[in-house]
Design a protein around this nucleic acid. Structure first.
Lengths: 272, 272
DNA sequence: ACCGTTCTTTGAACGTGTTCAAAACCTGCG
DNA sequence: CGCAGGTTTTGAACACGTTCAAAGAACGGT
């Protein structure tokens, strides 16, 4: 990491959002103007067609000023993502009210995301592209302190906990599932990004069909016959998936299954 | 699609690789020199640090000439990907010889990929970033005519068909699995891209632990109790996953399960 | 009121990917 | 050879993201 792509240009250490919290409330307004202008232009013209010069001009500031508040053009996306995540959490909570069926709650939560993100479809493709870059601090996978993800995971915890399924599951699974459901959302997002049908109808249908299946798999996991399978799957997820996305679940349990299916040495050929 | 990002600049229609096949063998040599130089520089300095001017200079041509053969810098990646895919298929086939156990064959195939890609780890992150862009014709997901994917899927067909698991599965599943195993590879690639451990040891361990699980799930799918679950999962994959990556599996069967779990209308709120 | 310090703003300048009109080269034909 | 048609090559020019030294504003202490 000796030659960082962006080496903390300003004194920005607080948020990955671009800069530290300013003291005066004045500059926060400038920041907001720039962000709002950028979002509008992204919506209107798309990400690539919107130049930093255009954003600055439309916002009534200089281009350098935009870079004072946002480390790069990509960091403007972060602003969008944070904003949308909160909007999604609110919308989903409202729509789920009263619904107990787990599959239906999950469906509502995912569909709510599609609705929130709808008008940014074109532009969000660019966002996803950025998310796939491990060097970018915007990536929801690699950046552990991504605040938006915590919000999203909390939403899925609610999806589960207020459903009829929650009391039937053991504690461990309850601990794991919110993150897994968030991964489910990531899969849906991936599908959505590539979806070109009007109103992303295909993705909506995909959600409608996949959620009952997810619910069924989770419900099945309680049965005796799957214990070994479920146990191994849980281990895999705990040891390899969750740490990657910045979680250390079940801290009271010291790395179970030390040598999983040991001995099974393969002839590791030496290149060429 | 009225304002294409890159509108077929030259008379390039043949390959997505950048240009049509030239008549003389001479220019093909120039093309090869440019590609090889680019790959070398990518390896040495990484993608971002390698400028088109540097590639051109090192290759002994002008920068415009590089653009005559490759529509953009990203298209140079395509060359890398095609090359590596074939290398992987060859290496995996050799290593699998004689091995019958499915989990082990899968492990070998995936690990072979990690070995082939090892020296491009840094640079391939950039490739993955490109792959996540639905507008890019390099994306293995959206671009249906991606020749490299056919090669990769064929490899996984071999992984399955020459294993002890193949005769125990029904025809439908046999049809689906190669593509699904390719998706498994895509997941591993995603994991690998974000993996920063030396020699990507973590990804290797992830493969070692996940392949037996995959094998177990597939084996389980034969049992009576899962029939409905497996049937729905198959339907979902056939209708929503495979078409997206450019496949039309089981063409003899006319869209089974027309209305899956019908009626379950949710109060679809009208925006705001 | 004056100064020092920090926060904010500016816009010219730089490096990079990409484009394009023109030149150079080639090849077959009279 | 001379010339017409194509293919290949050139490098200056352009647009954009980003940087930076310097200027301006705000504010606290004396």
């Amino acid at each position: 990491m000796e030659d960082n792509k962006r080496g903390a240009a300003a004194a920005a250490e607080e948020l990955p959002g671009g800069r530290a919290l300013p003291k005066t409330g004045k500059s926060e307004q400038t920041r907001a103007v720039i962000l709002d202008t950028a979002m509008r232009l992204f919506r209107e013209r798309g990400y690539d067609k919107t130049t930093m010069r255009a954003i600055a001009t439309e916002a009534g500031v200089s281009v350098g000023n935009a870079y004072y508040y946002f480390e790069s053009k990509e960091f403007l996306i972060q602003g969008f993502y944070d904003q949308m995540t909160h909007e999604h959490a609110r919308a989903a909570a409202v729509r789920m009210e009263g619904v107990r069926d787990f599959a239906e709650r999950l469906d509502i939560a995912l569909t709510a995301w599609l609705d929130c993100a709808a008008e940014y479809h074109e532009f969000a493709a660019q966002f996803f592209r950025t998310a796939a870059d491990p060097d970018s601090s915007l990536s929801p996978f690699s950046n552990e302190s991504h605040p938006a993800r915590a919000t999203a995971v909390a939403l899925f915890r609610d999806v589960l906990m207020d459903s009829d399924l929650a009391p039937k599951l053991d504690a461990e699974l309850t601990e794991l599932l919110p993150d897994l459901l968030w991964l489910h959302l990531m899969v849906v997002v991936l599908y959505w990004v590539f979806d070109r049908t009007p109103d992303t109808a295909r993705t909506r249908e995909f959600v409608r069909r996949s959620t009952p299946l997810t619910a069924r798999v989770i419900a099945l996991s309680r049965y005796r016959a799957f214990r070994p399978l479920v146990r191994d799957a849980k281990g895999l997820i705990q040891d390899f998936i969750l740490p990657t996305i910045g979680r250390t679940p079940l801290p009271d349990r010291p790395t179970s299954t030390p040598a999983p299916t040991s001995r099974r040495r393969k002839p590791r050929k030496s290149a060429t």
